[in-house]
Design a protein around this nucleic acid. Structure first.
Lengths: 344, 344
DNA sequence: CGTAGCAGGGAAAGCGGTTACCCGCTTCGG
DNA sequence: CCGAAGCGGGTAACCGCTTTCCCTGCTACG
């Protein structure tokens, strides 16, 4: 029986037959191999392949060669600008290297992350990049590490993006240092009374930024009081609600709110406005990441730039080079002062 | 010779041997097959697989079964919130269906899109989703169509997102109608003197929105004069520069600027501010898409909502159901009025 | 009691490639 | 002039898995 519109794709076999050569010759002609092929035959094969519309079956190649051209990317949330920029960098770099990237979202859930890593292993990717920030003390961490170790043992490469407690190659982002510098800059601008809108208290990225900021303040004999630190989801809405809560309890005397990432900062700014407080004039706001949109909010947001696209490229580059597990220098961050933190 | 840390992964063969059963039985135990397997053997196999940390090689499965669990997604720009939301929806839905998605970015280039489609065919994906908006009159269109036709002929499914001239299954987004309604709403609010910030003039999505808007105005005897329509890149910067140019030439008497998408609108608002014009008070601005960030710009942006995440899910769902190429109803759009277009 | 029918296990034939190996020719050094 | 050493083509083994087909041992039924 023949189901309409379901004839199978052209195979290398077809090409070989049509070109009147052996399978081996066809294979050798269509991809660089160690062996050279007679110029004329080669051309014939290539022409035939083009005429027939042949595309090599990547899966078949993968199983034959025992290695794929895939890089598996795991992020917390694909729709978050932070991750989508990262992904853009990785995909571009992958593409230049002739690699294909598959993507999954963990929704910030450690257990799910573990499941996904397990599932992705099935693809036998060349590289696995994990960009969802980890929570410290996550019970699934050990299992994750083991799974990744097993993956590496079979020849895979794993690269983390941003700090984590696990012993794998990592593109470090200097969350602590960037926040420390930001704190210094804020003090220089004349701010003295701080509050913070942070992510979940176990989230490594959030913690690093928060402690960097506090330590930066401490250098000037300042601090952000415990009562003025709010923890919430690492999202725009988290920022919004944290800021609302903060204002409800501690309305007075806040100079500047530091949000541990830009989307939270943006949410916080809207929260301020909803309370009738003008961000930048009444209360300053600073964020972290420098996602593109923060130039366009009002006032434009002071933040710490991470070259996310570059980080993505670097993650892939690092995975691809023979190199070991030496973390290397963290990528440079840079404090970007904008209108949300005017000189006081 | 043995290269350190490169032993190959556990294979089904290993599991079978270890469990003392045949390859066939092992295979049948680990994935539902038509054949039933003795309860006890089955358990033994499953346990052994778990103990050995076996993960089926997806490539091998693909070549054996002659079909993959992959969906290939092509977008214009991964970092653009429009596409990343779409992608998030697709990835989530895929994941629920046990599918894996691979992603590529066309950078809005038709030739590149064609190349990518060709390359992706190598993956033999079950579904291909094309979300980069097409340009009308693109010379590569015919070749693209042919490539996709060939793909469908070999059993693949292709789904486009948003209007296009190609004869494939499409999740329609009612760009025309949404813009028309928006225009009506703007007239009702009292606006009379319009300008538009549009994408490249061949870009189908941009055109549809623009003509919808103009037709909507026409119903009230209004229009946006040619001189007040600016075309630029479909990006934030495109919006920014268009708006600058517009203001330089046609400063007077503009009531409202319609930007054909939100990122352009946001860029335009910043351009206004840079010119000392207060968006919303001096000149109103409206966009299209309702990407999340537009609630947080000041003033919050009036726009037309597209349920992007849903559109993504729907695209996949449509690809998966046996259904033919009937386009079905376009997804509903909704005008969202916010502070950027106050009552006049 | 004979036999048809049906589980359910295993051997083996693929799936679409790659590549080790073999083999007939040249080319060259000794 | 002979043997070793490329060169370049084809044959076939193999990659990890699915699935067809065969075979055995039961049960059920006339």
């Amino acid at each position: 029986m023949h189901i309409a519109g379901s004839k199978s794709p052209v195979t290398l076999h077809d090409v070989a037959r049509e070109a009147g050569v052996s399978l081996a010759t066809a294979s050798r002609s269509l991809n660089g191999s160690t062996r050279t092929v007679n110029q004329e035959l080669q051309e014939r094969v290539v022409k035939t392949a083009a005429r027939l519309g042949y595309t090599p079956n990547l899966s078949a190649q993968a199983v034959a060669k025992g290695t794929t051209m895939t890089v598996a990317l795991l992020v917390a949330d694909i729709a978050d600008p932070y991750f989508s920029q990262l992904a853009a960098g990785i995909i571009r770099a992958a593409d230049e290297a002739g690699l294909i990237v598959t993507m999954e979202g963990t929704e910030g859930n450690g257990v799910r992350e573990l499941e996904l890593v397990r599932a992705m292993r099935g693809q036998r990717p060349k590289v696995m990049i994990l960009a969802g920030s980890r929570s410290s003390g996550d019970p699934s961490s050990e299992a994750l590490a083991e799974e990744l170790r097993a993956f590496e043992a079979t020849g895979g490469r794993v690269v983390f993006i941003s700090e984590n407690a696990l012993p794998f190659d990592t593109v470090l982002i200097d969350n602590y240092e960037g926040a420390r510098e930001l704190a210094g800059a804020m003090v220089n601008l004349g701010y003295r009374r701080f509050a913070a809108v942070a992510g979940p208290s176990q989230l490594v990225t959030s913690c690093d930024r928060l402690s960097g900021f506090r330590d930066g303040l401490a250098e000037h004999g300042l601090d952000v009081p415990e009562a003025r630190i709010r923890h919430a989801a690492f999202t725009r809405d988290g920022g919004y609600h944290s800021a609302r809560a903060l204002l409800a309890d501690e309305r007075e005397d806040i100079d500047l709110i530091f949000a541990v990432n830009d989307v939270m900062a943006v949410g916080a700014m809207t929260a301020l406005r909803d309370e009738g407080i003008l961000p930048g004039r009444d209360v300053a706001v600073a964020g972290y990441d420098d996602i593109p949109l923060v130039r366009d909010v009002t006032p434009a947001l002071t933040t710490v730039r991470i070259p996310l696209e570059l980080v993505g490229r670097q993650a892939l580059a690092r995975a691809l080079q023979a190199g070991g597990t030496d973390a290397g220098a963290p990528v440079a961050t840079e404090v970007i002062l904008r209108a949300s933190t005017p000189q006081r």
